[in-house]
Amino acid sequence: MASGKKKKYSKRLIIGWREWVTLPEFGGLQMKAKIDSGARTSSLHAFHIREMLIDGAPWVSFDIHPFQNNRHHAHACLAQVIDRRKVRSSNGKQEMRYVIESTLSLGGDSWPVEITLANRDEMGFRLLLGRTALRKRFLIHCGRSYLVSVPPASH
C-alpha cells in the first residue's frame, strides 16, 4: 500500500459492525444501527407512513419503533421527502421507497444522510447504515461492536 493511502486511512475512526447512533432531528433519538457496507442505501424502519404536502412540498409523517424487539415504544416523526426510489431489499425484491435526509451523529461527528423508509419489522435492526452514509468517514471492524458508542441510559 502506498504511504499516502495508509496515512489517509489511518485518520479514519474505526467503528464496529453495530453502533448506537443519534438522530437529532427526531428529538435526539438514539438507535442501534447495523453498519452494512454491502448495502448502498441506509434504511430506517418506519410504519404508518403518510404522505402530505406542507407549503407545496412533499413530506411524510411516520412512526418508528426505535428499539429492537420492542414494538410497544413508538416514536412519531416528520420529514421532508427528497426523493422516491426503487430499492432492492436483502430478499431481492424491488420496492419504491420514500427517501428523506436526516442528520446522523456517530463517534463525535454529525453529517446529513439519505435514508429510505421501509418496514423492517422482521429485521433485527431498526436502522441500517449503508456505505453511502459511511463513505470516507469510517473504517469498519467487522468483528467488534460499539467501538465509538454506548447505549442510551434508558435502554
Rank of each mutant, 00 (worst) to 15 (best):
K93V: 12
L29P: 03
H72V: 01
H73M: 04
D63R: 13
V81I: 15
D63S: 15
F26D: 02
S145H: 10
I140R: 00
I140G: 00
I54C: 07
L29E: 03
G28R: 11
L53Y: 13
A46V: 00
K93N: 13
N119E: 06
E122C: 08
V99M: 10
V150Q: 14
G28N: 08
D55N: 14
H141S: 15
W59F: 15
S43P: 06
H73D: 05
N91P: 04
D83F: 06
S89V: 11
H65F: 00
L139K: 00
L128Y: 13
R40F: 08
P151Y: 12
I140Y: 00
H45E: 00
L44V: 09
L106Y: 05
Q80E: 15
D109T: 06
H72A: 11
F125E: 06
H72M: 10
I100C: 11
G28F: 09
Y98R: 01
H141C: 11
L53H: 11
R126L: 12
H45Q: 02
K136Q: 05
P152V: 11
T103S: 12
V60P: 03
W59A: 04
D121M: 10
F67D: 13
G92K: 02
S90D: 11
G28P: 08
T41S: 15
A133T: 01
L78E: 13
P151K: 07
P112M: 12
Q80V: 00
M123T: 02
A79W: 01
S37N: 10
R126T: 06
H73F: 06
E51Y: 06
W111K: 09
R131Y: 13
I49H: 02
F47L: 06
H72Q: 14
C77P: 05
L147D: 04
M123C: 04
A33N: 08
A118D: 15
Q94S: 12
F62K: 13
F47C: 04
G108V: 07
I140T: 00
R85C: 01
R97A: 03
K93E: 15
T41D: 11
T41N: 09
G130E: 06
R88F: 07
Y98S: 02
Q94W: 10
L128H: 11
D83Y: 09
L78H: 10
V60H: 05
G108S: 05
F125W: 04
P151W: 08
I140S: 01
